[in-house]
């Protein structure tokens, strides 16, 4: 009886979890394979014919290859934002952990504020217009950096506190200037948190919908999330194409999940518990 318990419970859990969590994904995949007529029924049925390739071609080429542009934009956005985030957040975390100054409480307060306060949208747009950043991809990069800095800093600071200060001092005696200490000694040692940071932030920024919606209007520099949102109205009657699109933009997070599951979970829980 004590042995049967976990097995029966386990089977029940597998069935329920499959129903709740897997069926929606199965639905996405099945619909992406169907032709337009069958997809319109919105049923959870096996595709009568396999049209994934035609669907893919149509989604990708529609509106003058917009999805390709969107993927390129999203990639640029994600890679540059995360790069800047990693370097700038690590620099702040480093000084914050190492140097006790009267500014620290202010910085800590700003970090908490950044985690809590919703950004003031229209004033931001107004300001970005003034700076020539509105509607520009590099403007959005800076926005993503500004909004996600607090979380990255928290991740880094906690880790830097565990690196012995003697390493900095040994480097200083060896003749390292502040930039050498940071880039040649500290940053390489931060690699585990950097991986966590890269993974967590890139998933978040790749999936971000709200900020591109506000700060990156216009079709020529749409991101993949915006494209999906726009396709929603355009493909109102072509669910096969809509779900092919969803399938496509789910692949990058899936890959990240398969390879970095552990870092994501570690990063999200560590950041959350400390925040």
């Amino acid at each position: 009886m004590s042995k049967a318990g976990p097995i029966v419970g386990g089977i029940a859990a597998i069935v329920i979890s499959a129903l709740v969590f897997l069926v929606p994904f199965a639905f996405i995949i099945l619909t992406a394979f169907k032709d337009r007529a069958q997809a319109a029924a919105l049923d959870f049925t096996w595709p009568a014919s396999f049209n994934l390739w035609t669907n893919l071609v149509e989604v990708v080429t529609t509106r003058n290859w917009m999805l390709v542009t969107a993927f390129i934009n999203s990639t640029i956005l994600t890679v540059s934002s995360v790069t800047l985030l990693v370097v700038f957040a690590a620099m702040v975390g480093f000084i914050l952990a190492r140097r006790k100054s009267r500014w620290n409480p202010l910085v800590e307060f700003l970090i908490l504020a950044g985690l809590m306060i919703p950004p003031a949208v229209v004033p931001t747009i107004w300001l970005m217009q003034g700076l020539g950043l509105f509607g520009k991809l590099h403007g959005l990069v800076l926005i993503e950096v500004a909004y996600n800095l607090p979380f990255s800093i928290i991740l880094y600071r906690a880790f830097i506190a565990t690196i012995p200060r003697e390493l900095d001092e040994a480097a200083i005696i060896d003749g390292a200037r502040p930039l050498d200490v940071f880039f040649r000694v500290i940053l390489p040692l931060l690699w585990p948190v950097t991986v966590t940071n890269i993974v967590v932030q890139s998933v978040g920024i790749f999936n971000d919908f709200t900020n591109p919606l506000y700060y990156l209007p216009g079709n020529q520099n749409a991101t993949v999330q915006l494209t999906l949102y726009n396709f929603q109205s355009q493909f109102n009657t072509s669910y096969n194409l809509l779900f092919t699109n969803i399938l496509l933009i789910t692949i990058p997070p899936l890959i990240v999940f398969l390879f970095f599951n552990r870092q994501i979970v570690a990063g999200m829980t560590a950041g959350a518990v400390k925040g």
Partner: peptide
Amino acid sequence: GIAMVFQNYALYPH
């Protein structure tokens, strides 16, 4: 013109 040896060695791990 000095060099220093630390208690916990302080070798660069990487």
